[in-house]
Design a protein around this nucleic acid. Structure first.
Lengths: 177, 177
DNA sequence: GTCTATACTGTGATAGAC
DNA sequence: GTCTATCACAGTATAGAC
């Protein structure tokens, strides 16, 4: 077993990128700035990530994987409260990424992850209200899920448990439970 | 009275910009593309708009003004259904702009209109649930307002009246009425 | 395997001719 | 009101040093 390495450069790049993006948004953050903060040059960054898109994709990936794992383990019988609670936990755990996406949804298109997100949104809707929902049901589901994401991204100075309770309460009211 | 002029170039630029932005997003649309569609060169575009930001700001302005006018005329006594109905009408009337903003909230920062939007959101929350809301009330208000915007931007092939009914129903459920 | 030097393309933006 | 020419800088890309 090799001795523990100092932090990998790629990880340091990701960390710096997430910080800067949190401050200024995805499109407003240049690769030069990121490289500068890490203490390397722009082309050196290019060695670790083939493009700007690939860097951003590697930031978003953990959230996608986390949500998909949660959905795979989700039990349709467990009811909306448990389901939305699990969803909140995942997006809150990855809230820096959630904030980044909520601030600029078009990054999903940039990194070609729009369909992945649309897919798990659809799956969530199905678990919450079944197949072939009416327009009214769809609107309620969208409002509940999107609103949870919105609150997770927006209420940054609220302790987790208080936020969790408030958000779940609101989402369940939206769904009419 | 002068004879009716052909469409002003500035208006044609705005129209072309809105079309292209609807297709590809704000940050993904270049000034060259916009100028090309209008049939002029990039510097000619700069004669009409001092910067890219100013062009985008002039696109967002009508929505802001429309919402602010609606809020100024809003009666606190008229109740949440009338208030949210009026809000839906305004965002739906300007839905191309609403779509643009929902797709990339960071454009508001780009054109320095974040506080304007935050202000009327706050006013809306106050009209809906009063001053000094609890966290739970705030979450519900955010979910209702943000969810309406989300649905207005997202359900593009639903007739207005059907959408209006579905969205109002969901928003009122969220608020607990 | 990691980075530097260098260069290419396209972008927002300006100056000045017509 | 529109053009040509030009700028600085961004993202991207490769060649080669160590």
């Amino acid at each position: 077993m090799p001795r523990p390495r100092t932090t990998e450069t790629a990880d340091r790049i990701r960390a710096a990128a997430l910080e800067l993006i949190a401050e200024k948004g995805v499109q407003q953050t240049s690769l030069r700035e990121i490289a500068e903060r890490v203490g390397i040059t722009k082309p050196a960054l290019y060695y670790h990530f083939a493009s700007r898109e690939e860097l951003v994709r590697s930031l978003v990936r953990p959230l996608i994987d986390d949500v998909e794992a949660m959905l795979a383990a989700a039990d349709a019988e467990s009811g909306p409260r448990a389901l939305l609670g699990a969803y909140f936990d995942v997006t809150y755990r990855n809230r820096h990424i959630t904030q980044m996406i909520m601030r600029d949804l078009s990054v999903l298109a940039l990194v070609d992850l729009t369909t992945a997100v649309a897919t798990w949104r659809g799956r969530l809707v199905e678990l919450l209200i079944g197949k072939d929902p009416t327009l009214a049901q769809q609107a309620r589901a969208w409002m509940a899920i999107g609103g949870m994401d919105d609150c997770t991204a927006g209420f940054r100075d609220v302790p987790k448990e208080a936020l969790r309770e408030a958000v779940l309460d609101a989402a369940l009211a939206t769904l009419g439970r």
